[in-house]
Design a protein around this nucleic acid. Sequence first.
DNA 1: AGCCAGGACAAGT
DNA 2: ACTTGTCATGGC
Length: 297
Amino acid sequence: MVCFEADIDLDATFGCGQCFRWLRLAHGGWSGVAHGRELTVRRDGPLLLLEGAGEDERGLWQEYFDLGRDYGAVRALLAGDTVFAKAAAFAPGMRLLRQESWEALCSFILSQNNNIPRIRGIIERLCENFGERLAGGGYAFPTAHRLACISEKELAPLRCGFRAGYIADAARKVDSGEVDLSLAARMPLDEARALLQKIHGVGPKVAECTLLFGCGRVECFPVDVWIRRAMACYFPQGLPGRFEPVGGIAQQLLFHYVRCCPDAAHEEALAPFRRTGKARSAGLQKPTAAKAGSAPA
DNA sequence: AGCCAGGACAAGT
DNA sequence: ACTTGTCATGGC
């Protein structure tokens, strides 16, 4: 058991869409696998409790949960803007997780033209089929080497569709050293982007997600359909320059906010795209052209 | 039932 | 440089 004093909201942190392998437990805790270790996490007052972690792993988890960063300062900066102030207030304890780079790369390759529940399922099958079995019944995320050693056809049980070839190419290039992810964490950003995009199936958005969530590059700002909509609605001129150094945090707060928080300021523009809620059917209602004679089931 | 999903690619203008 | 169709699968 490892214990930190930390201001972190687990529901927001694990549930905001940045990670795919954490599961919420009935009592409010979360369980998952990271760095090849099974972990159950829960809050107790001001404390963050990591069950299943050894004291010798303290530094590892401190980094994973980004506990060294002064989120108070980040939030103070963002509070100067009306929109980000609301987004930050919606998820007061959300933190970026510093995930493993290879896992982040695979996860966001699989995320393209896909929805979050199905992404989770594909990653679960990926780990069950090719990850190391752990003592508690879970599975580690498979290594690039393991995936480089199998044929693309063997990825069929994942049912990840056209993305199988992308995973295969990523595994090959990472395993061979052609794409060095530890290097991508240190290189100049534009070089790191170009390096990742050498992988077939990695474009600007997946590269940006890999750098942000997997390489600790907090200035990265992935633009997906939701962020595109949100930016068009709130920041048609682009992200204000003073937020760029923490663009990744701003991005994740905004992503979570516009997807999950109904707000009059963006409701009309964004509600039609939300999966949950009746706003969708109301917003996309077709002009009910009931043709005479046709018998609707 | 049918639309669309935390995009990228290839082939068109 | 920008636009468009296509990709495989399944949540909702």
